[in-house]
Design a protein around this nucleic acid. Sequence first.
DNA 1: TAACTTATAGTACATTTGACTACAAGTCCG
DNA 2: CGGACTTGTAGTCAAATGTACTATAAGTTA
Lengths: 230, 230
Amino acid sequence: MEKPFSEAVIEALSIDCLIFGFKKNELDILLVQHGEGISKGKWALPGGWIKYNESVDDSASRILNDLTGVSNIYLEQLKTFGNVDRYPAKRVITIAYYALVKPENYTLHPGFTAADANWFKVSEVPELPYDHHKILQEGLSYLKHKVRHEPVGFNLIPKKFTLLQLQELYEAILDKKLDKPNFRRKLMKMNLLEPCEEKQTAVSHRAASLFRFDKKNYNRLKEKGFTFEL
Amino acid sequence: MEKPFSEAVIEALSIDCLIFGFKKNELDILLVQHGEGISKGKWALPGGWIKYNESVDDSASRILNDLTGVSNIYLEQLKTFGNVDRYPAKRVITIAYYALVKPENYTLHPGFTAADANWFKVSEVPELPYDHHKILQEGLSYLKHKVRHEPVGFNLIPKKFTLLQLQELYEAILDKKLDKPNFRRKLMKMNLLEPCEEKQTAVSHRAASLFRFDKKNYNRLKEKGFTFEL
DNA sequence: TAACTTATAGTACATTTGACTACAAGTCCG
DNA sequence: CGGACTTGTAGTCAAATGTACTATAAGTTA
């Protein structure tokens, strides 16, 4: 390979990550506080430079882990942003990735160039540098679409969940009220929810049944041409 | 800007274009024959280098025009491909764009580094270099999805078309038979087809009415929350 | 004019959706 | 203990949609 030593970065190319979480019926986004550089002190999407010896997918995982300690999650590519003036001082094109996670499963460990890392409600994100706001908007609108056509919402809630939890997740993302009986009927008919034979505990009202997402059956059904629609 | 002179290209970044067309009830893809370089003589997706002084969107339009003479089409970003070994000799990440066009509207003018440019049935594409085959596959599967959720199919057929033409387009892309009366009813009910008050000519059977896609009304309906579904 | 091709209308049934009602099963509080 | 309250769960019903057809109309070809 005619290239710099392998740890070198590709000057004009970066990665930015949109990590969505769901807490207290609110959609959250993971941000890091820059500890150095031209945006020092500002909160921004976790991002960094792509190295010569790693694929862009690997690059995204590494960068996210370096900055926040979040690892082993399925990052999917969203879109590449490449306007000439999106980054100051030099020409940088960035590839945006996104993922949906359960915040309670991760303890944040800010590291590398990040002074801090934290979750923010998407309705209350601080000012973001560069075109990060635009990236976030694109991510949100993609999420809204995606969640209705693929069963990705389950990545945002605990393994065992009640139907109401699931419904509230959808109401938060889609930003509209759903009818309870109809919602449950629809989901139940899909045969994607496996009953845990367990009930909620420590709730001050009738305990609801717990379910888990039946991924195996989803894959089986998908093979046969089934598509998740909500 | 701390960068080379503006005509310089970003070494590690290229564009590749997937241009789909529809002819004789077959889905086509536009390829160019390399006139120089390591893949000389081979057919490949039209592609090239991004310059420092142009956005990636502009870059895609320019490259396509340089190589094939096709201009003024709406290119949409598909995905960025960035495996370490996707390109020989040096590390190159490529941003794939795609578009749907009516082949009869364009005369191909191979130019720049392209020795030739031509349409190929997607079912009969020659061997392609690098990961272009993978890019094509991704483009096809995205197209299948897209065409069912947005009225983009109209970009592939003439402005004035019959319902059967439209149906055959969908049958070709989705690769399945559709019921004629039901298809027409469904489309008609959407209020997206504006009658041309004209009929087919020079056909050896009863002439069908011609329609055009009513983009204005589509936008109006979309505002109100309508979504195209097929 | 008969045979053929494609266009277009209509019908009948099953399924799905959406708005609701009703009731059950727990907790909380007096 | 008992009623108010909260959430879970089942059921109803009309309207809209989807699906598999049949029937007929309007041309062309020979």
